[in-house]
Computed example of a mutant assay.
Amino acid sequence: MLKRVLLLWGCLFLSVFASESTDINSKLFDLMYACDHGDGTSCTKVGDTYTFATGVEKDDNIAVTYYKKACDLKNANGCIALGVKYHNGQGVPRDHIRSRTYYKKACDYGGENGCHALGISYEQMRHYESAFKSYKKACSMGSSEGCMKVGLFYRQGKGVNQNNAKAVPYLEKACEGTARLVCKNIGDIYKYAQGVKQDLQKAKHFYERGCTLQHDKEACIAYRLIK
């Protein structure tokens, strides 16, 4: 009886697995077809499928081929993914110059993450002025992380003249968005009147936000001290 149950369970498992495998193959075929007919988003999704081994064996070479197609079709996410491949040397030789080239394309095609990645690349090279411009463009496209970087560059005088007053709107925007561990910075600016008029209520607001929403321990301490 037990053997029969196990046999039936095994047959059921294989049936479900085969069904899921067929479904994945069908979706992948549809994406490949759409990609071949000029849909850049589909090309990127095929690349992602092989990058993250979603129902297929991981293959960086195939992923690169489809990311390249996507980027040629001006799909920003495809360009970013291709830049990452060159940065990490996955499926292609490691090449930071090419990596930046594709980040720039992504940025030019309207991809905020491409502008942000380009900024990171320039910052790692200590080309702070170029990094600042890239982060500022990312911020203008809605990147909270880009806004955070612009604000911090103003605070630190990196690639731009140091100016706490100019840092404020960028850090506020970043804090109200998804950027992590930035709210304490703007709280400090208001608490210690760094380029702005002291405002302890605003400082308290940003410390609280950093503590409760971003789980920043330093922001929590600052919030408790200002109460």
Rank of each mutant, 00 (worst) to 15 (best):
M1N: 15
L2M: 09
L6E: 00
W9Y: 15
C11G: 13
L14C: 05
L14Y: 02
S15L: 15
S15A: 15
V16A: 04
F17K: 12
A18W: 03
A18V: 02
A18Q: 07
S19H: 11
T22R: 11
N25C: 06
F29M: 11
F29S: 14
L31W: 01
L31M: 06
M32P: 01
A34K: 13
H37N: 15
H37E: 13
G38C: 01
G38S: 14
G40N: 00
T44H: 06
D48E: 08
T49G: 03
Y50T: 02
Y50N: 03
G55R: 08
G55W: 07
G55P: 08
V56T: 06
V56P: 00
D60I: 01
D60C: 00
I62Y: 00
A63Y: 01
A63S: 07
V64T: 11
V64S: 03
T65G: 04
K68E: 13
K68T: 11
K69A: 14
A70G: 13
A70T: 09
C71G: 07
L73C: 11
N75K: 06
A76N: 13
C79F: 13
G83E: 01
G83D: 05
G83Q: 10
G83A: 09
H87K: 07
N88C: 01
G89C: 08
G89L: 02
P93D: 13
R94L: 10
H96Q: 09
I97K: 15
R98G: 02
R100W: 02
T101I: 06
K104R: 15
K105H: 15
K105S: 05
C107V: 09
C107S: 02
D108P: 03
Y109Q: 05
C115N: 00
C115K: 03
H116A: 10
A117F: 14
A117D: 15
Y122D: 12
E123S: 10
R126D: 14
E129I: 09
A131Y: 00
K137M: 09
M141E: 05
M141A: 06
S143Y: 05
C147E: 07
M148W: 13
K149F: 04
K149N: 14
Y154D: 14
Y154T: 10
R155L: 06
Q156G: 00
G157F: 13
N161Q: 15
N163F: 14
A167L: 08
A167H: 04
V168W: 12
E172N: 02
K173Q: 11
K173S: 08
A174P: 02
E176M: 11
A179V: 06
L181W: 11
V182S: 00
C183F: 00
N185C: 02
N185F: 04
I186N: 03
G187Y: 07
D188I: 11
Y190V: 07
K191I: 08
V196W: 08
Q201K: 10
K204W: 08
F206T: 05
C211I: 05
C211P: 13
L213F: 10
D216M: 09
A219S: 10
I221E: 10
A222Y: 06
